[in-house]
Design a binder for these strands. Structure first.
Length: 442
RNA sequence: GGUCCCUUCGUCUAGCGGUUAGGAUAUCUGGUUUUCAUCCAGAAGAUCACGGGUUCGAAUCCCGUAGGGACCGCCA
């Protein structure tokens, strides 16, 4: 049977580094096993789910180059969930519950206060038929729980090895809400079965869900799913990654002009035993992927790593690859301009700043006018080449006696307005004699 | 309170009973570059969380302690 994995975000917020890492791992697992990768939109909670987020999720994945073979929304399968639900009812594994959310909340608090575990006490299971009909005639609608009947559940986890969970410390899951909406624990299982998902790879936060879900799967079908739970990433502060944490959303990185491959390189290496380095391509990431290299201990994301990977990536870009982008930033940027300035860019869009310096003629007033005047007097006629700068500066040096930093820095500042930047021997060729004369005010 | 998991250079990690505890990244130094970045070379950086046990021998196996994470919802 061929491998099928899935990524199942709920469209209630933006994708962040943590989510997309899970997506990437599932995608890589499918791709390296010649399998299929499904994008499932978990939108059963109609109030919280927003179409806007669904399209953003899809756009983020596309932007990163993570393609999927199939996609569907859970909201399109309500009738299937109902069927499966009835199947469970028939075998007596479903029971109606009439507690209100407030009641349940109070119960949990009481249990905690008494030093016990906040687990549902199954009191609705003990309801008599009369009590149930009374509730019904009062117009009270039940929510429905799945009756778990194993004490423990164990499985071989690809990443955590043998996992053995005590089901008695977990509540019977609610599978249908009072308003008739199926819940994740259930709908996810139904979909995983129906779509023949072979490997569920998700964060460690789902480990106890898995125990409950295996119980559920076994009552519907025979479990054929292999699970894997990876450690969660934490923010560099050590805090949990949150969906509300927009600073690490994929969208925010895109807005900041971080390159997809830099993000993917980071996510493919952080929290794994792979070297933290820039990958040449998505293909390289696929070739090098080994699920076992993923750590089971929670690791933190250092955003600085992403920035430096991005910078390294930019240095490798050939002009042809990004010509269109550069032209959009400033259509006067050509190959020579790119090759001269790229060493000084953190993000591609930074080149705009150098465009402003080279193409615009904002006047610059030098500090040492005397010195700059001498320099301008010695400025050679065009055409200029790579030798021009050193010939010119040695003449200035002979005339003024200045050397080293005292010689070069004032010239750089007078001609560019900046104290650092690309090599001057290249940069002056971009500027040209007229621009320099026009700009420098002495 | 319960359940599950984790703990090795600043950071991400290798390690599976005998290693000078390895790598990556960050840092520092030198070279290259007028400068910065890149690149090259090198250095420094870890009492393997702590305590005990098993063993000729423990980062590695066992127990305990501490710290961290996740979950315990009519969210996903």
């Amino acid at each position: 049977m061929s491998t099928i994995t899935r990524f199942a975000p709920s469209p209630t917020g933006l994708l962040h580094l943590g989510n997309i890492r899970t997506a990437l791992i599932n995608w890589l697992y499918a791709r390296t096993n010649n399998g299929k990768f499904i994008l499932r939109i978990d939108d059963t909670d109609l109030e919280r789910s927003k179409e806007e987020f669904t399209s953003k999720i899809k756009y983020d994945l596309e932007w990163l180059g993570i393609d999927y073979d199939e996609t569907f929304n859970q909201s399109s399968r309500f009738d299937v969930y109902k069927e499966r639900f009835n199947q469970l009812v028939d075998i007596g594994r479903i029971y109606p519950c009439y507690e209100t959310p407030e009641e349940l909340d109070r119960k949990r608090k009481l249990q905690m206060a008494a030093g016990g575990k906040p687990v549902y006490d199954r009191s609705s299971l003990k309801l008599t038929e009369k009590q149930k009909t009374d509730f019904k005639s009062e117009g009270r609608k039940p929510h429905w729980r799945f009756l778990m009947n194993s004490e423990r559940v164990q499985w071989d986890d690809i990443l955590k090895d043998k996992v053995d969970i005590d089901l008695l410390s977990l509540s019977d899951p609610v599978v249908y809400r009072e308003d008739g909406v199926p819940l994740y624990t259930f709908s996810s299982v139904v979909d995983d079965i129906d779509f023949n998902v072979t490997n569920v790879i998700r964060g460690d936060d789902h480990t106890s869900n898995t125990a409950v879900q295996i119980e559920l799967i076994n009552s519907l079908d025979q479990n054929k799913i292999t699970f894997a739970h990876h450690a969660l990433l934490t923010a560099s502060s050590g805090d949990k990654l949150s969906k509300r944490d927009n600073v690490i959303s994929i969208e925010s990185f895109r807005d900041k002009h971080i390159e997809p491959l830099a993000i993917l390189s980071l996510l493919a290496t952080i929290g794994t035993s792979n070297s933290i380095e820039l990958k040449d391509s998505l293909q390289q990431i696929i070739n090098e992927f080994r699920i076992k290299t993923i750590s089971t201990s929670p690791g933190r994301i250092e955003i600085d790593l992403l920035n430096s990977l991005n910078k390294k990536l930019i240095q490798k870009f050939d002009y042809n690859e990004i010509e269109d982008r550069l032209k959009k930033i400033d259509n006067r940027i050509d190959r020579n301009f790119w090759e001269t300035t790229r060493g000084n860019l953190d993000i591609v869009e930074d080149i705009k700043g150098w465009g402003d310096i080279v193409f615009n003629s904002n006047p610059i007033e030098p500090v040492d006018k005397e010195f700059i005047k001498i320099a301008l007097d010695l400025m050679p006629d065009e055409p200029w080449n790579d030798e021009t700068w050193s010939n010119w500066t040695s003449k200035i040096k002979d005339k003024t006696g200045k050397k080293g930093k005292d010689l070069f820095l004032p010239l750089r500042e007078a001609f560019t307005g900046m104290s650092h930047g690309p090599e001057m021997k290249k940069l002056i060729q971009l500027l040209g004699r007229d621009k320099i004369l026009e700009r420098v005010k002495i």
